[in-house]
């Protein structure tokens, strides 16, 4: 029995090394990256990457590299800063923006709502769009940070949208 003890210990250690070294996929799925630039901070999924942003008032953009079509990720989140030349408050800016947003466009409103995020009110609009031949679903969350109004625009293909909800929530809930 005593002679076998080292062998048993070695075998146990070997198994521990194997288990700890190889079975880590679930952990990785929960990992996230941090974005800190331009006065904003948020977390985004580990498998996503930074993207160039070409949108009006664009501050940052992240996307899933696995969904890139023609250089554009179909699953992405873009942070935009509202150009508040009229000094609107958040609600007014939000309402003004969507006053004519869906008129004679390829966009279809799905839902609107508001919620509290980090003790501050946030407004959201969910809509679909079929621009550039791909039917996508968008979720635009409007919130105020300091004196600025930001919009977090999350988008994904309609069929992928529900699966990406957790990733969108990660960005929205960690936005500072």
């Amino acid at each position: 029995m005593n002679r076998n003890l080292p062998i048993i210990l070695m075998a146990t250690l070997f198994m521990v090394v194997l288990v700890s070294g190889c079975i880590t996929n679930d952990e990785k799925a929960n990992q996230s990256n941090n974005y800190t630039k331009g006065g904003v901070f948020f977390q985004y999924p580990h498998s996503w990457g930074l993207a160039k942003v070409n949108s009006t008032g664009g501050v940052a953009a992240v996307g899933d590299p696995q969904t890139v079509v023609n250089g554009k990720p179909t699953t992405s989140v873009v942070i935009q800063k509202y150009n508040n030349t009229n000094y609107y408050n958040l609600q007014t800016a939000y309402e003004q923006n969507y006053a004519k947003f869906f008129n004679n466009t390829g966009k279809t409103k799905v839902s609107v709502g508001n919620f509290t995020l980090n003790n501050a009110k946030a407004y959201e609009t969910v809509y679909t769009s079929s621009e550039s031949g791909i039917k996508k679903k968008y979720r635009a969350v409007w919130l105020q940070k300091g004196g600025n109004i930001y919009v977090i625009l999350c988008s994904a293909k309609v069929e992928d949208y529900d699966a990406q909800k957790a990733n969108f929530d990660l960005v929205i809930n960690t936005f500072r």
Binding site: K28, Q31, N33, H46, S47, W48, G49, L50, A51, K52, V53, N54, S55, T56, G57, G58, A61, G63, P65, V68, G71, K72, P73, S76, V78, Q80, Y82, N97, K100, F101, T105, Y138, A140, W142, V151, L153, S155
Partner: peptide, 20 residues
């Protein structure tokens, strides 16, 4: 281990906008 993809290996461009 997967290194954090601070810079994506794939060049991506986002031009979606929440504004009209």
């Amino acid at each position: 281990i997967n290194k954090p993809s601070e810079v994506s290996s794939v060049s991506m461009l986002v031009n979606d906008s929440a504004f009209p």
